[in-house]
């Protein structure tokens, strides 16, 4: 297939309208996949450490304060207790999270605390609903970048998807990308709001055509967040987009991923559908807040042969 190497891609409505997704078949794939692959013992440890690398450690609450962000940043820099790391006999520095993800107000504080060791991502464009004025949303991106944000998580206008207004969606995401001055943007589709997996697939394509560097499942605030089904559909679109354009777009599932078992399923899904190329922070992130605690407990169990009480794991 012809590969077009270029930064911006035209909106291709034929491609979008031809997207086919069969829900039952998608469900069969995800339910069998998690039983076709597993990782055990030292392999599991390695995969879990990799998961930490891919984590967008997140706090997105109305009650976020400087204090809360301080804890979060500290945890981001020291995700696993020293004693576990030393027992695993691996270099301490290799274990850190992919990014810290916060609201605009806390960007500069996080930036300061992390002093460039870990990127800071800001949620933007009227997060989570994305329905404030177009100008305000664009301005938000610029402001966050001016405050030092390294990555911008934008939300798309879900009504464009529901009404199949692909041109409007394309134009809007494209203009957000232009505002981001070369910083990576992650387009949040709000999978829980757009009804069908077919729409998820179509919205993924439009966001990628418009220049999104990542496509992300959800804000974490909708009723349905990331699951293996909507993730599989998005990954297949990423693969198709790559095959057609040569551009590798990243993927970020968010919301509801809270156990080691969950996160391993996602890693396996990506490894099987896109290949290990995608298992790096440049192309894969997991948006989560409580997941890290569970990973740490699993590592603790591997090292000490028993499960730890939560109180032994530092909270973020």
């Amino acid at each position: 297939m012809l590969k077009i190497k270029q930064k911006n891609f035209q909106l291709n409505e034929d491609w979008i309208n031809n997207v086919k997704v069969n829900l039952s078949a998608v469900e069969r794939r995800t339910s069998s996949l998690t039983k076709r692959r597993t990782v055990k013992k030292e392999y599991q440890v390695a995969w879990l450490l990799k998961a930490i690398n891919l984590l967008d450690l997140t706090t997105l609450s109305g009650d976020d304060t400087f204090g809360k962000v301080e804890k979060l940043c500290h945890k981001a820099l020291n995700p696993v207790s020293e004693i576990v790391i030393s027992k695993l006999n691996i270099p301490y520095k290799s274990v850190k999270v992919g990014a810290v993800c916060v609201y605009h107000d806390l960007v500069s504080h996080a930036k300061e605390l992390l002093s460039g060791k870990i990127p800071v991502a800001a949620v933007s464009t009227g997060f989570p609903a994305g329905l404030s004025s177009y100008q305000t949303r664009k301005k938000e991106i610029v402001n966050s970048i001016n405050k030092g944000a390294d990555e911008i998580d934008i939300v798309i206008n879900r009504s464009f998807v529901i009404r199949n207004e692909w041109k409007k969606l394309y134009d809007e995401v494209k203009s957000f990308k232009e505002c981001s001055k070369g910083k990576k943007i992650k387009a949040i589709l709000g999978v829980g709001d757009i009804g069908t997996l077919r729409n998820v697939a179509k919205a993924s394509l439009v966001a990628m055509m418009a220049g999104a560097d990542f496509i992300k499942t959800s804000t974490g605030k909708e009723k349905t967040n990331a699951n293996l089904n909507n993730s599989l559909v998005m990954l297949r679109m990423i693969r198709e987009f790559y095959e057609y354009t040569g551009k590798k777009v990243g993927f970020k599932p968010a919301g509801g991923i809270s156990t080691s078992k969950d996160v391993l399923s996602y890693l396996i899904l990506i490894n099987e559908e896109l290949g290990s190329d995608w298992l790096k922070p440049e192309l894969f992130r997991i948006g989560a807040s409580s997941l890290l605690m569970d990973i740490e407990r699993q590592l603790y169990h591997y090292v000490f042969g028993r499960y730890a009480t939560n109180d032994k794991m530092a909270i973020a």
């Binding site: 692959r37 597993t38 990782v39 055990k40 013992k41 030292e42 392999y43 440890v45 390695a46 995969w47 450490l49 990799k50 695993l88 006999n89 691996i90 270099p91 290799s94 890693l267 490894n271 290990s276 298992l279």
Partner: peptide
């Protein structure tokens, strides 16, 4: 082994 696996991300044996 863990570092090796971390780099290669193989499934190993189960």
């Amino acid at each position: 082994n863990i570092i090796k696996n971390f780099k290669n991300l193989e499934y190993g044996i189960a």
